[in-house]
Design a protein around this nucleic acid. Structure first.
Lengths: 238, 238
DNA sequence: CTATTGAATTGATTTATATCAATTTTTTTG
DNA sequence: CAAAAAAATTGATATAAATCAATTCAATAG
């Protein structure tokens, strides 16, 4: 069993967002708005900081806010029916979460845990819905974001269903390359344990497969987090 | 390799929607609207029929419409990177698809194939976006629908990642029971071959596991499509 | 209604990956 | 910086599920 620390949240630093601290201006779903509209939203946004290991929300809790990552890193995971943990995604600044419980009735199906000290912006459910009715273009941006997520998740599902672990690892590396195409090296966005969970395998198997890929000359482990991709095309044929 | 028939579509019966044929009135994302607004939308909706085996769209095609199932049954599937087919979902009357390519740039990532003769309503991309800007509540309904789908897909991903085939089958049966709780029997919504694909396994393994569940007294196969659930609670502990 | 085709089942075998256990390496903390 | 804890690796083994092949069963067309 994992041991995620459940710190007390009472000492969280909570304050209204001020204009220097434009937490929402980095968010794709809002940053297209006029300054005036942005200010209006900023008035109802609260900012909360979470220490490493603290939970933004837990599975089963009811939801009333949209959470936007201002700084830090958040792990979203769920516990499956049989109680095993599965990492769904890692949120970085500009990403948001909590929307599932916002637009439908029901409770959170996932856990959101701060991986490092993180600053999160909150928008209340009612406030958000009012803005969506007032500024319909925000909805279109959220719909676009949802579409991307849905597609991403469906792709991941198909990979689990049809590809073997080695291929899933290769495809994950390829995805990372797309995002940071600057160099031919990628930085793993999470620990091996989390990556194993994300890829639907075990740390042991992940370790072995990575070693194997290195032996076959497709990749090179520069450090624990940095992996150099030597031959992406060949890697994808694995 | 599968052999999905690629009929010629030229003989499709295409017509504007009239008011007797309120294809969109059965759709959760529209049926909350005033009659007046509904009429307005009906004016831009087209209706197209597809014969069994025909494709509504294919992976890689660009998209410009939202497709709403009026009658019939549609299979959505994708081909994974290695070329294997994975059934993602089966659409029934009232369900819609095509939205992914509608709200983001890019092409379809999936195939939509009529499993039986089906009547589909189309709404053009630009028309839809205009309505969303004019009647923001529609967006909220689509967002709600997206949320459900996203949650469903993430749940499925987690099941692939953490549960063995036998458990996935049991959970699928349980989901079916939720939907048709009237009796203690369920009707499989697709062929065994498709179900195997949907559950990320092979027809052979599916067949064996179902036989096993029957031997152990959890279920009883009434016919090929009808399965009686004898002990759901025990089934879920498998 | 029978013949043909495709779907589903059953059997034998192989393969990928999980599991259990023991080290080694890395990170954290006092 | 040293000690402790956690993470990652490596090895040996067990197991679930895929694959290949053969039959049986069900659906469809002539």
């Amino acid at each position: 069993m994992e041991s995620y620390h459940n710190h007390c949240c009472s000492q969280n630093h909570e304050k209204g967002c001020n204009h220097q601290d434009r937490c929402i201006s980095i968010v794709p779903i809002f940053n297209h708005l006029e300054d005036e509209q942005m200010d209006e939203i900023l008035n109802v946004v609260r900012s909360v900081t979470y220490k490493k290991g603290e939970f933004i929300y837990r599975q089963g809790e009811s939801s009333d806010s949209l959470y936007i990552i201002h700084s830090g890193k958040v792990r979203i995971y769920r516990l499956s029916e049989s109680g095993k943990e599965q990492v769904l995604r890692i949120l970085n600044p500009g990403d948001f979460t909590g929307e599932l419980a916002l637009f439908k009735e029901g409770t959170h199906e996932t856990y959101a845990e701060a991986m490092v000290d993180s600053s999160i912006c909150l928008i209340n459910r009612d406030d958000l819905q009012q803005f969506l009715m007032k500024y319909p273009s925000i909805s279109l941006h959220i719909l676009s974001e949802f579409s991307n997520r849905l597609e991403q998740t469906e792709k991941q599902t198909a990979r689990f269903a049809t590809e073997k672990v080695e291929t899933r690892i290769a495809l994950f590396f390829a995805d990372c390359m797309d995002k940071e195409s600057k160099s031919n090296a990628i930085e793993l966005p999470m620990s091996r344990k989390d990556l194993a969970s994300y890829l639907g395998t075990t740390p042991e198997t992940l370790s072995r497969k990575i070693t194997e890929l290195e032996k076959d000359g497709y990749i090179k482990q520069r450090s624990n987090k940095i992996i150099e991709i030597i031959d992406l095309d060949e890697l994808l044929l694995v």
